[in-house]
Nucleic acid binder design. Sequence first.
DNA 1: GATGAATGAGAATTCATTCAT
DNA 2: TATGAATGAATTCTCATTCAT
Lengths: 192, 192, 192, 192
Amino acid sequence: MRDRPKYRQIIEAAVEVIAENGYHASQVSKIAKKAKVADGTIYLYFKNKEDILISVFKEKMGHFIEKTENAINEKETASDRLLTFIKMHYKQLTESPYLAIVTQLELRQSKPELRQEINKVLKSYLDVIDSIVSLGIENGEIRSDINPQLIRQMIFGTLDETVTTWVMKSQRYRLIDQVEEVHRLLTKGLFK
Amino acid sequence: MRDRPKYRQIIEAAVEVIAENGYHASQVSKIAKKAKVADGTIYLYFKNKEDILISVFKEKMGHFIEKTENAINEKETASDRLLTFIKMHYKQLTESPYLAIVTQLELRQSKPELRQEINKVLKSYLDVIDSIVSLGIENGEIRSDINPQLIRQMIFGTLDETVTTWVMKSQRYRLIDQVEEVHRLLTKGLFK
Amino acid sequence: MRDRPKYRQIIEAAVEVIAENGYHASQVSKIAKKAKVADGTIYLYFKNKEDILISVFKEKMGHFIEKTENAINEKETASDRLLTFIKMHYKQLTESPYLAIVTQLELRQSKPELRQEINKVLKSYLDVIDSIVSLGIENGEIRSDINPQLIRQMIFGTLDETVTTWVMKSQRYRLIDQVEEVHRLLTKGLFK
Amino acid sequence: MRDRPKYRQIIEAAVEVIAENGYHASQVSKIAKKAKVADGTIYLYFKNKEDILISVFKEKMGHFIEKTENAINEKETASDRLLTFIKMHYKQLTESPYLAIVTQLELRQSKPELRQEINKVLKSYLDVIDSIVSLGIENGEIRSDINPQLIRQMIFGTLDETVTTWVMKSQRYRLIDQVEEVHRLLTKGLFK
DNA sequence: GATGAATGAGAATTCATTCAT
DNA sequence: TATGAATGAATTCTCATTCAT
């Protein structure tokens, strides 16, 4: 299923159409047209319109997470892993500008069922951050006087906000240039 | 206009209805009903449905920002101001749980016109953070080897993510208890 | 509600459109057009398309039954009541040819919820027949060696079939001319 | 054609599926699945969906009528033939409960082309009744002061209504037990 | 100002039918 | 013959917005 050509076409078309128009303004017929399939064909591969969005996210984030994990596992220290994580986060979203728009804007919908599904996927990504934090605490790199959850929230929140700002500014600068600075900021804090 | 009773009723009803159902599932008629006015009356006070959302945000954020600014101005150092900022952010969202839901979830709309308006309002809030950062850099509290924009993004991103997590966990713990920890984390960083 | 003009218009339009096209081929928009209201207006008065059909039946059968009961109650004997019943049945369906088509053909749908509602209404009509049979058995006119339910089924089945035949033959003869003959047939049987 | 295995499979599957879901809710794909053939195969044997319904009826009623005629022809008098007719009608529908549902509910379709075809088949069945009535009139058993068509309508209408009632009551009693009573009722009438 | 009945554009989804394999 | 993936026409219903009262 996942590797049937029409499935791929629809997924790719959906990312683009949603990035361009927003989820609510993305008619199924528009996605079908861009994917060069008939409207009805969409429903052979997806339960309904929502399912398209969820599937897009699962598909894309799946790769995303996998690559990130692989890259991280090559590093020893929590510091290096965090640096790699930031790099991968920025790199991958830079390479898929449509995906960036979808994740930063479209997925923040609050329709409960939708959020739940999305959070499930997001969870695995947050788990990756948690693993870095755990490692850091164990080997003494990261301070242990702060709730690790909070640390993870700062890391993710910061990356997320920097990407959103970048998307909102029409991706006019290079995210990747900020890697070192963000890493320093997160690890050392904003105070001298 | 802003202080005519029906206007207030509609704004308050809108916050609740949107928090409960999400923006897209919040029919104008539902808001009218909760506000105890006729459907048509809404259109005497608001241009269209979008205008309701924007107005809600402007109204609420207006107060929000004003109070925050007042509280901050009583403090001398950037450190104290940041602490106060965090405290106010958590306090106010805790006091208006409906508003918290609306800001964390519903405002992540991607409809271009909508976002633009929302960002305008958000801008003044981010300006407050910027003013704290500027002060800190001037008086030497905050490191000057990092882009101040990035610092602001970390601060806002972290607060935003912690609130979103709290909203997603159905507000089952007290945000306010995290103030000190978050302040320490932001200022000193996650490394020992 | 029931006597608001638009409600009436829709009901009348529905009878005609359904009689002409059959229920499944009667698009809501077609009914709206004939009723000279907007499509959406239909939904202010009816829950959904099915509700239109049920309401048409309830409305029409309501009158139908009422008139029949009134006419019957003026007669003393079961024989006279039966004669009147046959007369009324034929007369009313003759006067509302559209209704005849709808009752004989369209209502024989088997969608469970639909049938259930229709049967509820039909029940009151069958009750009228039962009351005639009961009277006849009590006062000795009608034979008591046969299950009264069966008698009712014969009476209704016969009338129903004669009307269906008439509808199928495009109502080319006068139903009312058969009243006496049908009455004789039912009461005396087909044998000499 | 008629005796190719796939044809039979489809016919049998169709009867069941239509009885269970009603004609309109019986998707061709559902019938194909139950018949264990591909969707497209259906169209090698039937012109379209309507053709399935008509064919089901023709097939089933063909047997039905044939058996009924054979049974009747063994009897001498109109009375005996009528008794046999009633018996066969009830017996066969009791033995094929799915068919009973289809004939009593699903064939009451109003789509003109459909009805026309169905009526053609039904005609031969009604002809059987007519032949009984003719015989009865000829040999003096049946009264000649009543239009024979009307007699046939009473007979068929009564049987039809009794079967419909039985189907509607979920076939919870035995039709066959009513044979004698119905025969007496039809021949002698409801009056003493 | 206030009402709420009426409007009608708009969109997701279904499913009979086709046709390349 | 047989398959079943693909098609796309067709239709119900929703809901923001208007406007006569």
